[in-house]
């Protein structure tokens, strides 16, 4: 394409096309930028801030910031790795993440990111919030303890499923994902084949009766660090 342009990520020259975000252009070049709230096919949220990069010396979310000709982007630097680590640690202490019995363990993007970033334990005190579980739907449950407020389910239900089953309610530290019915998830139009059911990066929205199907050792991130598939593809 004639209107492609070049810019650099950590000194490596990559090609971008108009309309691409930095994260998308990086992916196309086989460069992985850590992320949680971003998911291909959904509008970017810019919420988790894990994909933060430095663009011309300013911190920006790579998932939402447009790629542009000549940009100088820093991604995998000591400073940014350390900042990302702290944001992931914040997510761990903010919720109640009991990996030892979570159905999503081994396939969880939050956990996998912490592994890849080498987090043995968050440096912050655990907040132990009181959160709710909604099991009113016959096929799907929401465990608020594990929710990281990334909003993927909200965007998937609204923009892909065309239903708007989910939405943020409350604010500040109490912000949580609410559902579109006064009677809970069971009162919404959510069905098992909704995209929104499968986009949760953690174990907050799960299908009922299918937990622990894959043995430990064979799960997605048991041996392969998150992002390495993309990096291998790009190499």
């Amino acid at each position: 394409m004639s209107d492609t342009f070049r810019f650099t990520i950590d000194g490596v020259e990559v090609t971008g096309t108009p309309g691409q975000t930095i994260l998308q252009a990086a992916e196309a070049a086989g460069i992985w930028i850590p992320r949680l709230c971003y998911l291909e096919g959904l509008v970017p949220g810019g919420a988790c801030r894990v994909c933060t990069v430095k663009v011309q010396g300013r911190f920006q979310a790579a998932c939402a910031f447009p790629a542009g000709p000549g940009l100088v982007v820093e991604n995998d630097t000591e400073e940014i790795r350390e900042l990302r680590k702290q944001v992931v640690e914040m997510l761990f202490v903010e919720g109640n993440h009991f990996c030892m019995f979570c159905e999503k363990s081994g396939n969880c993007e939050l956990q996998a990111l912490a592994y890849r970033l080498g987090i043995a334990s968050p440096r912050y005190p655990y907040l132990f919030p009181v959160r709710q579980v909604d099991a009113s739907h016959p096929d799907v449950f929401i465990d608020g303890n594990r929710c990281i407020q990334c909003g993927r389910c909200i965007r998937a239900s609204r923009d892909v499923d065309g239903k708007g089953v989910f939405g943020f309610v409350e604010r500040s530290r109490d912000t949580r994902v609410g559902v579109d019915a006064r009677t809970g998830l069971g009162g919404t139009s959510l069905t098992l084949d909704d995209r929104a059911v499968t986009v949760c990066p953690v174990g907050a929205i799960l299908k009922k009766r299918v937990g622990f199907a894959v043995p430990i050792g064979e799960r997605l991130y048991d041996h392969r660090p998150i992002g390495t598939d993309l990096e291998r593809r790009g190499a």
Binding site: N96, H97, S121, F128, P129
Partner: peptide, 18 residues
Amino acid sequence: VALGDCATMGGLPAMRNG
């Protein structure tokens, strides 16, 4: 050394915290 999840983050017993 905090040995294991309970020492690190409270673990299963901490489920009573709420």
